[in-house]
Amino acid sequence: MYGDLADKLIAEARRSENLEQIPLYQTDIVRAVCRETRQLSALEDQALATAGSDRTKLATAGVYGLCQRRNKRCLLAYHRQRLLKLQKKAWHEQDSFETSNLSPSEQVFVREFNEVLVNVKDMFEDIDLTGSMDPPREMYVEVRCLQDAGEIQTEYGVFDLSKNSQFYVRQSDVHRLVQQKLVELVKK
C-alpha cells in the first residue's frame, strides 16, 4: 500500500529519538520511498491527462497527489530528526563523533558543520560556547581521572591527571575535561 515505507521511516525516527547513538541511515527505504513518490507523480499525471470531466479519475489523481505529499513530508521529517541529532552531537562531541552510521551527505554536513563551529569558537575564545546553559549548582566538584593526561594548568593552580586520582576542583576548570571524557564527576 502507498505510504507503508514512509511509515517505516517515521517509526525509525521515533525509535531513534531517545537513543544515544545515531542509527544506520536507511538508504534502501529512503530510495524506495523516493521511487514510490515518482511513481505516484506519474500516475497522477496520467490520471489528470485522461480525466477530462470524469470525477472518479480526478479523485484518483487527488489521492495520488496526497500520497505524494505525505511521502515527502515523511522523508523530510526523517531527515530533519537526523539533522537535529547530528547538530547536537557535533556541537557537544566535536572531537569524538562517530560517523560510520551516516550517509555520505550527512558525513559532509558534519565535516562542514564542525568547520563552522571551530570558526565561531575561534571568534569567541574567552567564552566556552559548548558549555551548559544551566547554572552550576555547586562551585566545586569532585572528579576522578579516567586516564593519564599529565599536568593541567588552571586559573587557580596546577594538578596532575593520573588515572584513578581524585580532585576537588572548580567546576569551570574541569568542564572541558568532562566533555573530553578525561575525568568523570564523582556522585555523592
Rank of each mutant, 00 (worst) to 15 (best):
V33P: 14
K163W: 03
Q107C: 01
E125H: 05
E44Q: 08
F167H: 15
S172W: 04
S100K: 06
L117V: 02
T50S: 13
K188T: 14
G3T: 08
E93I: 10
Y168H: 12
H79Q: 07
S162G: 01
T154F: 11
H92I: 01
V178C: 13
C145M: 11
K89S: 12
D7W: 03
D134Y: 03
N18A: 09
F124I: 01
C74M: 05
G131V: 03
M133L: 11
R80A: 02
L5H: 05
N164A: 10
R15V: 03
L182P: 11
C34N: 05
E115R: 08
L66K: 10
A32M: 10
Y64F: 15
I29V: 15
P104Q: 02
G3C: 03
R73T: 11
E106A: 02
G131P: 11
R69H: 06
F167I: 07
L76C: 04
S96D: 12
K163M: 04
Q180W: 14
L58H: 02
Q153E: 15
D122K: 10
A42C: 04
D173T: 12
H92T: 02
D95T: 01
G52Q: 12
F159L: 05
C145I: 14
G131A: 00
L66R: 12
E12M: 14
K72F: 05
L24Q: 07
I29S: 14
C67M: 02
R69F: 01
A90H: 02
R14G: 08
E138M: 06
R137H: 06
D148W: 09
T27I: 11
E115Q: 09
L19Y: 00
V30W: 06
K121D: 02
L5N: 10
G52F: 06
A149N: 11
V143A: 08
Y2I: 07
E184K: 15
S96V: 10
D28F: 04
A51P: 00
N18W: 00
L83D: 03
D134E: 08
Q153L: 15
L58D: 10
Q107G: 02
Q147K: 14
G150T: 07
L48C: 08
T37Q: 09
E12R: 13
M133F: 11
A49E: 10
Y168Q: 05
L43F: 09
C145Q: 06
L48H: 12
K181T: 15
E112A: 00
A11Q: 13
A32I: 05
R15L: 13
T60W: 04
S172T: 06
K188A: 13
R70Y: 03
R69L: 06
S96N: 14
L161E: 07
K181W: 11
E155R: 14
A90G: 07
N18Y: 01
N164W: 06
S165F: 04
E155C: 05
T99L: 07
S165L: 11
L102S: 03
N71S: 02
Q81E: 01
V118E: 06
K8F: 11
C74V: 01
K72I: 04
E106M: 01
G52N: 10
G3D: 06
R111G: 00
Q153F: 12
S16G: 12
S162I: 11
T130K: 06
S165R: 14
P23N: 04
V116S: 01
C74D: 08
S103R: 01
T27D: 13
A47M: 11
F167D: 09
R14I: 07
